[in-house]
């Protein structure tokens, strides 16, 4: 977060310097030699504007709100660290963090294992583009649609899955309505949506591994399991780590599926942190408090990313 203080100055520098008339004589000379200053400003101006207005300004504003009692209407009064203290005491905040963590572990865990399996199968068996395209389909569909379709498939009365279970004399299962099943169902629905995408990423990583390695190992009599555990897995580690980082961060930001299928219920059993922040901001209009929780989430994600990138770098140096 300390980076933001610096960034404010840097951006204004970048904007003001080439625009204003150069105060000192050496500058135009150098710019002339390189010939880029003015042109570069025109090239990056849209980006700087977009960044300043929709990334930098809201970051500063959000930070400020976290120290105020700002609600959507009216004045923001400075309240010091009250919001942070409130968040740490708020049972619902901790509950939503716990629910999110459950979701992340179930979702990232299952989807990474399945994606690894799928990628390995594709790598060893087929190069079919049609197969890969089909596996990618769920990723291209909006999460809202995914949520709706599975809400219908898993409906307690009329859903196909429960009809199937019913025909096997297994009572109807309230996949979304049973508090102890809700978050697992949401996790697995998103596993369905994202496994193919992750499998393609891992598959691309596997294509980078020199094929001769497999061939010479196969000549030496290595079985498929040996090929996987001795060649694929170790050489895939950087890509695997990258996929894990990306899906972990994405997974923490689950919102759409919950908003469509369970709305955080039953009895808050699926109220993930994104949904709780959303409710605090747009149902109760506690924008100051919502901003505080968003900052706490940023901190959690920052720590996780840092740890994971360290692991990633460690694995890369091992390979080099």
């Amino acid at each position: 977060m300390t980076g933001w203080g610096k960034s404010r100055g840097a951006i204004t520098d970048g904007l003001s310097q080439p625009v204003g008339p150069a105060p000192r004589p050496p500058r135009p000379l150098r710019r002339h030699r390189r010939g880029d200053g003015r042109v570069a400003l025109i090239f990056i101006a849209p980006i700087l504007v977009g960044f300043a207005v929709f990334y930098l300004y809201p970051t500063v504003r959000g930070l400020w709100w976290s120290f105020t009692d700002f609600s959507l209407i009216g004045q923001a009064n400075f309240v010091g660290l009250d919001n942070y203290a409130a968040a740490l005491r708020d049972f619902e905040f901790w509950n939503s963090m716990r629910v999110t963590l459950c979701y992340v572990i179930l979702n990232v865990g299952s989807q990474t294992v399945l994606a690894l399996l799928l990628a390995t199968l594709m790598h060893r068996l087929t190069r079919s583009v049609i197969l890969r395209t089909t596996l990618l389909l769920p990723w291209l569909v909006p999460n809202v649609t995914v949520g709706l379709v599975w809400l219908w498939l898993l409906d307690a009365d009329l859903g196909f899955v429960n009809r199937l279970l019913g025909s096997m004399d297994l009572g109807p299962v309230g996949f979304f309505t049973n508090p102890s099943l809700g978050i697992m169902t949401v996790s697995l629905v998103n596993t369905w949506a994202y496994t193919g995408y992750n499998a393609l990423l891992l598959y691309a990583g596997m294509l980078q591994i020199p094929p001769d390695l497999y061939e010479s190992a196969a000549i030496d009599g290595a079985g498929e399991w040996k090929l996987f555990s001795r060649i694929t897995l170790p050489l895939l580690r950087p890509v695997l780590a990258l996929v894990l980082v990306v899906s972990l961060i994405g997974s923490f930001q689950i919102f759409d599926t919950v908003a469509v299928t369970t709305k955080g219920g039953p009895v808050n059993a699926t109220r993930v942190i994104y949904y709780y922040i959303y409710q605090q901001a747009f149902t109760y209009f506690h924008l100051g408090y919502a901003a505080t929780m968003a900052i706490l989430l940023v901190l959690v994600l920052g720590v996780l990313t840092f740890v994971q990138l360290r692991l990633l770098r460690a694995s890369e140096s091992q390979l080099a």
Partner: peptide
């Protein structure tokens, strides 16, 4: 600095952007 924004989850900028 621009790329550091990759780390910031959407919900954080979403609230002020909405306002």
């Amino acid at each position: 600095i621009l790329v550091a924004a990759l780390m910031v989850p959407g919900i954080f900028t979403l609230l002020p952007n909405f306002v």
